[in-house]
Design a protein around this nucleic acid. Sequence first.
DNA 1: GTCTATAGGTGATACCAGTCACACAGAAAA
DNA 2: TTTTCTGTGTGACTGGTATCACCTATAGAC
Lengths: 210, 210
Amino acid sequence: MQEQYPIRKLFPGLEEGLYEEMMKHGDIREIPAGTVMLRKGQSIRSTMLILQGIVKLYQEDEEGNEFFMYDIEPGEACAVSMVCTYRQENSQVVAKALTDVTVLTIPLQYMDEWLGKYKSWHYFVIRTWRARYEELLNTINEIAFKNMDERLEFYIKGQVKKMGRQIKLTHQEIATDLNSSREVISRLMKKMEKNGWVIIHRNSFEWIKP
Amino acid sequence: MQEQYPIRKLFPGLEEGLYEEMMKHGDIREIPAGTVMLRKGQSIRSTMLILQGIVKLYQEDEEGNEFFMYDIEPGEACAVSMVCTYRQENSQVVAKALTDVTVLTIPLQYMDEWLGKYKSWHYFVIRTWRARYEELLNTINEIAFKNMDERLEFYIKGQVKKMGRQIKLTHQEIATDLNSSREVISRLMKKMEKNGWVIIHRNSFEWIKP
DNA sequence: GTCTATAGGTGATACCAGTCACACAGAAAA
DNA sequence: TTTTCTGTGTGACTGGTATCACCTATAGAC
């Protein structure tokens, strides 16, 4: 691996030997925006660390409805791809490249070998699982206890945090992520605009509310 | 620790030295039914492995509404209690002893030490996180895509799997777990009874449908 | 500038689920 | 037995959100 990505900054706190192994054995892959990186039920033979771009994880049901779970960003890893025991998956998780994405792919054998050699790797793996678990916990909180308007606000705030206040999403895209319908999102957005929380443009909007 | 619990059978596949350390350093605790074992926001200083009984995990929102996540059974561990990095928790998770429970408590220092010494311990920890992650995934699937009748059926089937076909739960308790209301559950149960899926008694019911 | 495709707006309606009110039933206590 | 308590059954109503129908606005192509 060429030293072109700042993996020490992206994944801080790992052991020096581990960085070297990552660079030696890791495989850099460029993935164009829109690619489905992980299909539901697919068995995984490697671990992916994100170097660049954003990967979106969502669930899909039998009828093709989607439900947004969370995004993975540079410096994070795909928990779902960190398999340690083989199991026939029936989890309906799909990972899709939201932008052009660069990943560092770690073959399963090293993933395993490093567990014995590098304590920091171990912590990294657990930290990843834990972080994802907590994201799901939050998600459950939202859909179990909150109404659509609160969920929409939560969703937009999440986007703002990652993409800035200028969000390029259509109402239809948001509706898909929240497993709602365009009309509902349109109405709620309009209401938010009336409250001065947001300015709506075509294809995008700007979040004002702090 | 006295050799009175079959930890080798409950937690199979671990290293012999690890079993010995678990018995040496682990602390057995008996917890009466109904005890709240883990309150939301509580910081955790030990890991709990379940030896006996059932622990229920649920979320709680600001207004005191509950939402059932999953049960932990003998041979499993409480993922939430497996902290490795200290972080101020705001996860609203509550763990409650559903029956009288016996746990093996592992002080955090060993939890950490064993990671370096025993590969099987490492796998156990990751397996635990992964399993819980998947339970949450299923839960999201249910609430995101399904109606109350389907969710109720899913819930009951989960109970049947753990407790057998004779379920001792009131409609109110089910409603609380699903964050619904008693009347709704009563109506749906009645419909299921008409379909011959279930026989309703007072305080309990019997699940017929396979 | 006009056309066309796509995004967004809005009323009408339907439906599921939550809430209120109250009746009833069975078990336990008096 | 009678009372009381708790669990269940059910009609009426309400509110949130999904769906349908159709309209308007805007960007980009022609």
